[in-house]
Design a binder for these strands. Structure first.
Lengths: 231, 231
DNA sequence: CAAATTTGTGACAGAAATGTTACAACGCGA
DNA sequence: TCGCGTTGTAACATTTCTGTCACAAATTTG
């Protein structure tokens, strides 16, 4: 999915930064580091990372303080933040959420857990600009020209199939029930049979062809999911 | 899932209330009725229904007036409202939406449409708890993508196995009887043999593979337990 | 140790969910 | 109006899941 995401790690302990950086690099992310909030702020403005991992307690400016500043500036308000903290104090969680923290990880945590939560937040938060071209495994959807194409040739999609594909491509790695899909793709207050979704899924799969139909996965008993990850 | 939602139907014509009530009861909702806005207000404060279906035109206090009152009181401000109206006048729709109406249904409507829109509003309004990724010894369960994975590869779980695993991962280090598991994982009022649990435990263990099956421990004479600690 | 109890395991038929096809209704531009 | 593409639904096909049973293995009891 596009180029590697830039993740800024902010922690005053270099050993922790190292540990996290290694885990993230292995997972295919690109890491930036800062050992204090001021430097972090500068890097964020300068580099516009895709996410900030922020230690709660730091000398001078605390993580939570930095988070507030980021939120109050339009340029940085949309960058998701994950807080790292040694305390699992509920009060602090509440504070964090109030300040617009996207997730919360309590030390100690496993690198794997970190990566998993990080991906989850990226999925949830990255809204993908409405008019942005989306590409997944050679499958390209261009909202401007309102076309989807694979290997250069345009796919033959009906309007509904197109909307369905667009929705999926901008909401990957997440299972949706038929009802949710009806809500999101058909629009809130239409009432059509749930099974109608299956039929359109079928049509979309057919249009995607063997090369890409694996992207639409059925989640038995639940609904469907769009993901590059094989089941 | 949860108990039946309480829906208050407010309309001065009893035949309409009846019709709606029947449709909703069939869809599994619990209905309250009121034939005027005053009574409705009282019932709302008293019973705190999950939603109000409100007729636009009524003697004395109109539906729209009641809606305004409900919105202005913190106790009732969050209760979603669907307006029933005989007119499809755009102006009124605007008015309705301004007063915090969540949806709008023009008479005549089919029971099916009513139920569909009602569910849609309930879904939109009731925010689901934040589902967090759970990780135990390299075993990751992600409720969002509805996937469980170990070492990067997704486990092949049936719906029941998935629920069972999810339950265990969020209720570790505690022994549960077969009956309790049936209650929690299958849902209260199903009648299945207790031994069925054993079979699903078996299937889950198989899916977890040698690497992780130790997590599901048999507590002889009692039931099962999920724990990283070896017995 | 033998009997009794409890749990593990594989197989299987019925049930449930999903895949697939066909078709009638609808809207829309020619 | 006709023809065409699209859509929702029903009907049927296929796949997958579920609950039970019968028997094996393990553990406890006497």
């Amino acid at each position: 999915m596009g180029s590697a995401k830039k993740i800024l790690i902010v922690d005053d302990e270099s050993s922790i930064r190292q540990m996290i950086a290694v885990a993230l690099e292995m997972a295919g992310f690109h890491c930036l580091e800062a050992d204090n909030a001021h430097l972090a702020h500068q890097i964020i403005i300068d580099q516009q990372p895709d996410m900030v991992l922020l230690d709660w307690m730091m000398p001078k400016m605390s993580g939570i303080e930095l988070a507030r500043r980021l939120r109050s500036d339009a340029l940085t308000a949309d960058i998701p933040i994950i807080m790292l903290t040694a305390r699992d104090d509920e009060d602090h969680k509440v504070h964090g959420l109030e300040a617009g923290i996207d997730d919360y990880i309590t030390k100690p945590f496993s690198p794997r857990e970190l990566v998993a939560r990080l991906k989850s937040v990226l999925r949830r938060v990255t809204p993908k600009g409405v008019d942005q071209i989306v590409e997944v495994d050679q499958l390209i959807l261009d909202p401007i020209s309102h076309r989807a194409s694979a290997e250069g040739s345009t796919l033959d999609l009906g309007p509904t199939e197109y909307r369905l594909l667009q929705f999926f491509m901008t909401h990957q790695d997440r299972a949706y029930s038929r009802t949710q899909l009806l809500d999101m793709v058909w629009g809130g207050n239409v009432y059509v049979e749930e099974r109608t979704v299956d039929v359109h899924i079928r049509r979309l799969r057919k249009a995607l062809g063997e090369r890409h139909e694996y992207l639409i996965q059925t989640v038995r008993g639940t609904g469907y999911r769009f993901s590059t990850q094989t089941q």
